[in-house]
Structure formats: structure tokens, C-alpha cells
């Protein structure tokens, strides 16, 4: 019972604790990541995404029913929302797209790619002090979203 009504607080607390961790954090979106549940475990120094994964504010179904009061506009929502790995890379929400080759050996290749990126990110952050790691993550999220000065 309690979990249901305070899931909002759980998300907030999870992000809060993640933001303070003094070790490098690498987050990888491997399937469908959406809303606060995804972000609750998404406050990383590096955020990767598999090429065909999606990451969004809400499911396209939820999005079209909330924004347009019309759940049938799912396809349009999915296009407008910018939820693909390429979109999110362009929006600077993620740092790297992990290629997903379309062949028999895909799984092994993806794992190999991932391993390579994880290792190189770790070695990149290895020399950083605890404070630098926390500050690196802070600056990443501090600069999320562009705005115009009027």
C-alpha cells in the first residue's frame, strides 16, 4: 500500500542518493525506459543507449492521451516525442549510442561493444577524484535543456 502513494518520493530519494555517489556511474538504457522510474536509476556520469532502445518522459500511449486527450494518436506521439537513441544523443541527454548490428551474432557483438564503451569510460574517469566525479555528474545534469534569454 505505502509504496503506491509514495513512489514519487522514492524516485526523488533515489536520484538524490545517486547524485551524491562518489564513484563513477554508467547507466545504460537497454529497452524501454520511461518516466520517473527510468530516471530514478538514470543519474549517471555517462548514459548510454542501445541503438533501438527508447527513453522518454512517458509512454507514447500516455503522452497522446495526456497532451491531446486522444490515445489513438500513439504513432504521432512516438514521432514527436524524440525518444530514439539518435534523438536523445542530439538533445545531449545521452552520451553514446551502442550499435545493434542486425545479424545472427548480434547479441555477442552488442555485448562486445558495450564492454568496450564501459571499459573506456571507466578508464577515462579513473583518474578523477571523488569530488571531481560528483561535480562531473552535477554539471552534466545542470546543463540539461536549453533556454533563451529574453
Amino acid at each position: 500500500m505505502l509504496k503506491k502513494e509514495v513512489s514519487g518520493e522514492a524516485i526523488a530519494k533515489s536520484m538524490f542518493e545517486m547524485a551524491k555517489l562518489e564513484v563513477p556511474i554508467i547507466c545504460i538504457v537497454i529497452g524501454e525506459g520511461s518516466s520517473g522510474g527510468a530516471l530514478a536509476i538514470g543519474v549517471g556520469n555517462k548514459v548510454f543507449m542501445l541503438e533501438n532502445a527508447i527513453y522518454s518522459i512517458l509512454s507514447p500511449e500516455g503522452y497522446s492521451s495526456i497532451l491531446w486527450k486522444d490515445p489513438s494518436r500513439i504513432k504521432e506521439a512516438a514521432e514527436k516525442m524524440k525518444l530514439t537513441a539518435k534523438d536523445l544523443y542530439d538533445l545531449k541527454v545521452i552520451d553514446k549510442i551502442i550499435k545493434e548490428p542486425d545479424d545472427e551474432d548480434a547479441f555477442n557483438k552488442i555485448c562486445k561493444n558495450l564492454r568496450k564503451e564501459i571499459v573506456s569510460s571507466i578508464s577515462e574517469m579513473k583518474e578523477m577524484s571523488k569530488d571531481e566525479i560528483v561535480e562531473h555528474r552535477y554539471q552534466k545534469f545542470r546543463n540539461m535543456g536549453e533556454f533563451i534569454k529574453i
Binding site: F16, K20, L39, S56, I57, L91, F141
Partner: peptide
């Protein structure tokens, strides 16, 4: 809640404000 019209960028504001609160 988060502003639908700005999609994932709105979602990221949750992490941004929360991170600032840790400081």
C-alpha cells in the same frame, strides 16, 4: 508534473533540481 510539451528535457529537470538540492 513534468511538462509534456518539452518531452524528455522536462524529465531531466527532475534530476537537475534534485542534484542541486544535494549541494
Amino acid at each position: 508534473g513534468a511538462r509534456m510539451q518539452e518531452g524528455i528535457i522536462s524529465l531531466m529537470q527532475m534530476a537537475k533540481t534534485t542534484s542541486a538540492l544535494t549541494k
